[in-house]
């Protein structure tokens, strides 16, 4: 019960950060994809199951508030959560270089995935439009990632959640 409450709080906190507060870190429409970074963090620290479930819920919420293809964000964030969870215990997640590399790769994969989904499922007005944000956001995410990882680790310490105890 305690764990479910914690995940619910995390779920709503993610939404608040992404859709409520990220605008305050935006520059000319470019803002970091906090959900993606947090998801990678959770995947690397807690494993696939938590990350993919949170990814699905966040993605679905994103689809609900956006006008993009319904289900596209849910699918991509679920995949990001699952794949980052596969790196759990395999990569040294405390290394800043690793955090940067994985975030950059996931950001690029996210946009590429979105492009593929539009290519497959997009009809009529649903067309993928290239813009500068697509090119710059992976770099922005890459820069923000170490800060989020650092903060996440501190929060895990505060709530006394150990990396080892979790599932895969």
């Amino acid at each position: 019960m305690k764990r479910i409450s914690g995940y619910l709080i995390l779920f709503f906190a993610g939404l608040v950060i992404q859709f409520g507060w990220s605008q305050y870190l935006s520059y000319k429409g470019l803002s970091p994809n906090f959900l993606l970074i947090i998801l990678i963090f959770i995947g690397m620290f807690r494993g696939s199951l938590t990350a993919q479930l949170l990814g699905f819920m966040w993605g679905l919420s994103w689809d609900v508030v956006s006008v993009d293809l319904f289900g596209s964000h849910a699918l991509l964030l679920t995949a990001v959560g699952f794949l980052s969870g596969k790196l759990n215990r395999k990569w040294d997640e405390d290394k800043v270089v690793n955090q940067i590399i994985i975030t950059f790769a996931a950001s690029v994969a996210f946009w590429f995935g979105l492009f593929c989904l539009y290519f497959i499922f997009g009809q009529g007005e649903y067309k993928f439009r290239l813009n500068s944000i697509i090119f710059f956001q992976p770099f922005y995410n890459m820069l923000v990632a170490p800060a989020i990882f650092w903060l996440g680790e501190r929060l895990l310490d505060i709530f006394d959640v150990r990396k080892e105890e979790e599932e895969y």
């Binding site: 699905f56 993605g59 293809l69 319904f70 596209s72 699918l75 989904l117």
Partner: peptide, 8 residues
Amino acid sequence: LAVCTLLL
């Protein structure tokens, strides 16, 4: 993934 594909 199946749910997402169904939604899409």
